[in-house]
């Protein structure tokens, strides 16, 4: 079924981020800063794809790095750093969207959209370089994708975002979600099928 790795997974010790984490464990706070600067944007975006709100995404990403910071003294290099980091991030996001008072906010029609930064408009590298019409169409499409993403069951959303957006292998997604690779394959397939159906008009 799924591919079997032809070569053994690289030793964690050969991962430069693991080396930084070990330096941090030894007390070098600059190593932590380096890790933060390298991964903060990816983690904020992962959380944003998950919860659909910039303030919440940034707060969640802070929570994630807070956990990394706290874990520093006890850190053991058992996995690639990013695998470990996304495991923390996934748990933080799943806990967040599973909080009863938060659940409704992941539903498409109730997503908060007042903040102009909410839907990512300010992420446009140069809005004037794109014609107003196509920029608007782009924003509408993106909002639609985020709505559909936000309506997916959490595990499907996590699996899809981790594999498609963050580029993790199914193996690493399985690690982050604490499930099997074949479960990940199924989650990604079902998420993709929903997106394909809901976004048919754009395909």
């Amino acid at each position: 079924m799924l591919k079997t790795p032809k070569v053994a997974a690289p030793e964690p010790s050969s991962d430069p981020d693991v080396q930084l984490m070990l330096r941090f464990r030894a007390g070098d706070e600059n190593a932590f800063r380096e890790l933060f600067e390298k991964h903060a944007r990816a983690i904020v975006n992962f959380a944003y794809n998950f919860v659909g709100s910039r303030p919440r995404a940034e707060e969640l990403a802070q929570d994630v790095f807070l956990q990394v910071y706290r874990a520093g003294p006890r850190y053991e290099p058992n996995a690639k750093f990013t695998t470990w980091l996304y495991r923390i991030a996934t748990n933080a996001c799943l806990n967040e969207v599973r909080r009863p008072e938060r659940r409704y906010r992941t539903r498409p029609l109730e997503r908060d959209t007042d903040d102009p930064g909410e839907r990512g408009e300010i992420a446009l590298p140069d809005p004037d370089a794109i014609s107003g019409e196509s920029a608007l169409a782009g924003r509408e499409l993106e909002a639609r994708i985020r709505d559909v993403l936000g309506a997916l069951p959490e595990n499907q959303r996590a699996a899809l975002v981790l594999s498609r957006v963050d580029g993790l292998s199914y193996r690493d997604v399985a690690d982050a979600l604490a499930c099997s690779e074949s479960a990940v394959k199924s989650l990604v397939f079902r998420a993709t099928a929903t997106l394909r159906r809901e976004l048919e008009e754009f395909l």
Binding site: E37, G120, I122, A123, L203
Partner: peptide, 22 residues
């Protein structure tokens, strides 16, 4: 095509004070 749509989502840039707040 669906993958291309997803890949085309623009990532957020961090708020300028994000690191400081962290």
């Amino acid at each position: 095509r669906l993958r291309a749509l997803i890949d085309g989502m623009r990532p957020l840039e961090l708020s300028t004070d994000f690191a400081d707040r962290t």
